[in-house]
């Protein structure tokens, strides 16, 4: 479609949005142009989800939506009314790390740590999907999460260790 100037819509006021955020109901006043990622980071105080590209090209913003891994930067927040969102802050059970988190530490599956929340949630999602069993499957399943530090072999090792222990 052409993008020739047409008058923009008048800014729509914020509306109430209720989500199940890391197991708790949370309500926000949200304008239409707020993405799920920006809602989490700037309004919910959950800065664990990272903005690496803001365009669906790096995976750092991965969260679980109703248990499925998805990119929060490409989702409008308002489209997720009532959804259960799990971020990295909500993954551990109390002080007990989730097995994928623990395996990432043990296998040194990160360096700078910036992509790590997205990697971990993507791994949790991929394991649940059931298609991350062999090394090659893990590599493919995790290819939507860039790691510029190049921790990929250790990420594969961490996920494989979790799978073995299951």
């Amino acid at each position: 479609m052409p993008t020739t100037e047409r008058p923009a819509a008048p800014a729509q006021p914020a509306v109430q949005l209720t989500l199940r955020l890391n197991g708790r109901e949370a309500t926000f006043a949200v304008e239409p142009d707020v993405t799920l990622l920006d809602l989490l980071r700037e309004r919910a105080g959950l800065t664990g989800s990272k903005k690496g590209c803001d365009r669906g090209q790096c995976g750092a913003c991965t969260v679980l939506v109703n248990g499925r891994r998805t990119l929060s930067c490409l989702a409008l927040a308002l489209a997720h009314a009532g959804d259960a969102i799990t971020t990295i802050e909500g993954l551990a059970a109390g002080s007990e790390l989730h097995p994928v988190q623990a395996a990432f530490v043990e296998h040194d599956a990160f360096q700078c740590g910036f992509c790590t929340p997205g990697q971990i949630l993507s791994a949790v999602g991929a394991i649940a999907e059931g298609h991350a069993r062999t090394g090659d499957e893990i590599r493919e399943a995790m290819s939507g999460n860039l790691c510029r530090c190049g921790a990929y072999p250790n990420i594969v090792a961490a996920i494989a260790a979790v799978q073995r222990a299951r």
């Binding site: 990295i88 993954l91 530490v105 040194d108 990160f110 790590t116």
Partner: peptide, 8 residues
Amino acid sequence: DGHAKVTG
């Protein structure tokens, strides 16, 4: 710093 990095 691993714990801090895997928990956000």
